[in-house]
Each structure stands twice: as C-alpha cells, then as structure tokens.
C-alpha cells in the first residue's frame, strides 16, 4: 500500500527542541520531530504523555517555552490563525465543529484563509464577490464529495452521526488547503468498520500530496497507517522509527505496560505459566511492598 520509498522527501514540518512548561510542570521536554512531504507520521504515547500539548505548540494555540517550529523552512509565528494560513491544518481530539452551522458552511469556514473577500465586497456584492463565493462553494462541495458527505451538505453539523462528524472535521481542515494535516485521535470512539474507513481516507489525503501527523491510541491503526512512529512518554520523545521497530522496542512496551519488577517471570517463563504459578505467587508479595515504599 505504501509507496513512499522512492520519493525524495523534503521536510515539511521541523520542530526542534520544543519545550512547554506550565509553571513548574514540564508537559513537553525538548522534543524534535520532522515530517517529510508525502509522509504519514504517527505520534503515540500513554495518556498524559503530552501529545496534545505538543500539537497545540505546533499549531500556535500554545506558545512553546523554548524551541521553534518551522514549516517548509520558515519559522511559524505562535498564532493559530497564522499557522493555518501558512499551511498547517488540524482536527481536535474532542470534535470541535461549528455545531449549529450546516455541513457546507463548516467547510466554507475552513476556506477562510484561502479567500479574501472583505466586508465591503460583501456589502456591495461586486461580481468578484459572487465569483469568489461560487468558487468557494464548488471547492467545498468537492471536499464533501471526497469525504463522502456531499449528500448531507445542508444538514446541521450537530445532527451528523459521530463518524461523519469526524470526517467533516477532516474535510473542514482540508478546506484550508494545507500542506500538513495534524489529526488528533481521528478514530477515538469509532467502531472497527469506521476505523478502516478513516484509514482509507487518510491514505487518500496522503495521495493528494498532503503530509499527515497523527496522534492515536489504536496501535493497530497506527501500525497499518504510518511510515514512521514517534513515541512520547512523560513529555519526552523516547523512540522514533518505522512502526515495526517501535512496536518491538522495550522502552515503548515499558511505557505502556510498565517495567517488569525484578525477578519477575520473563517471556520464556511466562509461556510456562502453569508450571511457574507457584513461583509467581511467591514473587507477588515483594512486588506490592516495593510499590508501597515508593
């Protein structure tokens, strides 16, 4: 499925040394991340690892304490609307659609940065206004078609089923004609069917030449999807690499499942659980006391 091996990738996003501190708490600690064009990069990590905070730093919602984020070689100003203008679009972990606008209007709002009809042209209704409005509508309908929502263009966003709201959020983000799309948990709350549909959608987006950076918990989804995966644990990037490598990395397993305590059954012993049952029970007791001491 992935055909990125031969492409000479240019760097789209380059975050260097991004650190975000909230008072004494360091949510993100000097994280470096690059995304090349035509790449799908995954960002995973346990809850509270700072993934969304890092996203917010990238998109200008937060001003990072130190570090810079640059897009195609230019350093981004920490203002969300300027970041979008530059070419980075995003979706939100908890869907943030304009609930009381129609599906089409939602996408039209996404076109905001790519059109520049001001108040005067709206009031005077010059021919240029009509032309721009027409073009925006056409483009928005294309995107809805792409996301499979064209039939629901006139529905209120709030009335869409959950999966379609996710799709609409992606369509809205695409309306700003980004070079990089940031997806914050695009499959949260979806059933397996919908997840597969989302996968296809993301591949289709990549095929349009848009790089994608995706936060996700669903490991299988990430493994299918991503060319490269970075793992964030407690605000620090611990591993980065191809999906298979990351999946096998001990530190990642440790971060998700915890470190095995000393004297715990290893992988081989675990296979003979029945035989080692007594030994395991004996080992249980010291582990709890160890926990208490901490």
């Amino acid at each position: 499925m992935t055909t990125t091996t031969t492409t000479t990738t240019t760097t789209v996003l380059d975050a260097t040394g991004v650190t975000m501190q909230f008072g004494g708490l360091t949510a993100v600690r000097s994280v470096d991340l690059t995304v090349g064009s035509g790449e799908i990069v995954g960002l995973i990590g346990p809850n509270g690892a700072g993934k969304t905070t890092f996203f917010n730093c990238l998109t200008g919602l937060y001003v990072p304490t130190t570090g810079t984020v640059s897009y195609k070689g230019t350093v981004l100003p920490p203002k969300p609307h300027l970041v979008t203008q530059a070419g980075i679009a995003r979706t939100f972990q908890n869907i943030r659609l304009f609930a009381n606008m129609t599906v089409l209007e939602n996408v039209l709002v996404g076109r905001h940065t790519r059109t520049n009809e001001g108040l005067w042209s709206a009031l005077l209704r010059l021919p240029s206004f009509k032309k721009a409005e027409e073009a925006s509508r056409e483009r928005a309908m294309e995107l809805l078609e792409f996301a499979g929502l064209a039939a629901k263009a006139d529905h209120l966003a709030r009335n869409l089923p959950y999966g379609e709201q996710r799709k609409l959020e992606i369509a809205r983000a695409l309306a700003s004609e980004p070079g990089l799309l940031l997806l914050d948990e695009p499959t949260a709350g979806m059933n397996p069917q919908e997840t597969r549909a989302a996968e296809d959608l993301i591949f289709a987006i990549r095929d349009k030449g848009i790089a994608v950076l995706v936060i996700e918990h669903d490991i299988r989804f990430i493994m299918n999807l991503c060319d490269r995966v970075a793992v964030l644990v407690q605000g620090e990037k611990i591993v980065e690499g191809p999906a298979e490598v990351v999946q096998a990395d001990e530190r990642v397993i440790a971060a998700y499942l915890g470190t095995p305590f000393e004297g715990a059954p290893g992988a081989e012993e675990a296979a003979e659980v029945e035989a080692a049952e007594e030994a395991a029970e004996a080992a249980e007791a010291p582990s709890t006391t160890e926990g208490d001491e901490k």
């Binding site: 919602l61 939100f92 659609l97 304009f98 609930a99 709002v109 940065t113």
Partner: peptide, 13 residues
C-alpha cells in the same frame, strides 16, 4: 460557535 476552533481554521478572532 467555537472561538478556538475558529482560530484554528485560520480566522483572526
């Protein structure tokens, strides 16, 4: 509707 989402869509709030 949602000012944060609006700015993320490139609107200068």
């Amino acid at each position: 509707e949602d000012e944060t989402a609006a700015t993320a869509m490139g609107i200068n709030g």
